[in-house]
Design a protein around this nucleic acid. Structure first.
Lengths: 161, 161
DNA sequence: AGATGCATGTAAATAGTTACATGATTCA
DNA sequence: TGAATCATGTAACTATTTACATGCATCT
């Protein structure tokens, strides 16, 4: 893949797995190339260069997977905002959650389309499994947004205690 | 809340919303205090200091909520790893997913316990809504892990194409 | 010919982690 | 009295974003 394609991928269907901007991707590709973990596999118009993983790169990934514990902490700005929804008028809070639901329903539709394509090769199949997670995540987020909005509409946040 | 309590909260029930280490929290509290967005509300043994939000702090939060678009990108290292599971032996991949399921079932149980406590006051109620999301997220993650593991056990990743 | 999208790169600033550092209180 | 936990702080490093910068290719 090229740096440009990676940037698109991170901004698209990998948005709920990992992200990176092109300004981080290009220097990182240069570093990986320098370390022999990837190799340039093709070049195209407009200085386009695609890279593929080397045996050393695969070994490094394997070592990472086996030797380290996953970091299971999340950062979800949209949910962080929910903690402060009590500072807004209920109507504003409802509008926020309505937008969230809309966004996630739209994402869900996009992922469903992509998911129809049959993956070929092990890497594509692993991506298919991760995309299935994306699908479930978007649905859960849309459903939660609708649920929370209804609770707020019922006066959940403004009732005194 | 004190810096120490915030660190615990981020590491505990806010783990799937936002995180920060104490080394980030303390300088940030100093900055917020300096900017008049929080005020010191109490002090205890061992230099313990708790802070509460000021009117200016609330206004700043409101402005953030209303004037900026939420960043809906995620970073989920545990799911990033899934993209590279094809590099492992199927047995190793299954072990990874089994651990993930276990972790999320345990988290689910913890959150369910916390969620039984009735929230008092609007901020607590907003946190309750976010925790309900945490609950749904942990369940979805556990279910997905079990599903993906079964697919891999059925040879999904190693079948040629 | 002009707009749009492809394609890459770098510098400066901000955000966040890891490691180093210290000391008080509580409990066994 | 020794260990664990509470509690805060800082320095160095790494990661990430924002802004600046350039130019080619394709389509209308």
């Amino acid at each position: 893949m090229s740096g440009y394609e990676l940037a698109k991928l991170f901004d698209g269907e990998l948005r709920n797995v990992w992200t990176a901007k092109h300004s981080q991707i290009y220097p990182e590709l240069a570093r990986l190339l320098d370390d022999g973990l990837i190799r340039q596999s093709a070049s195209g118009p407009r200085r386009r260069r695609t890279y593929s993983i080397t045996a050393a790169g695969k070994a490094a990934l394997r070592a990472w997977l086996i030797e380290s514990e996953p970091d299971r902490s999340y950062r979800h700005e949209a949910m962080l905002r929910v903690l402060f929804l009590w500072l807004l008028e209920p109507g504003q809070a409802e509008a926020y959650l309505r937008q969230e639901e809309e966004f996630h329903r739209a994402q869900l539709a996009v992922l469903k389309e992509v998911q129809r394509i049959r993956p070929s090769g092990p890497a594509q199949r692993a991506q298919h499994l991760a995309r299935e997670w994306g699908l479930r995540l978007e649905k859960a987020l849309a459903d939660w947004s609708a649920w929370a909005r209804k609770r707020i509409a019922d006066g959940y946040l403004d009732s005194p205690d």
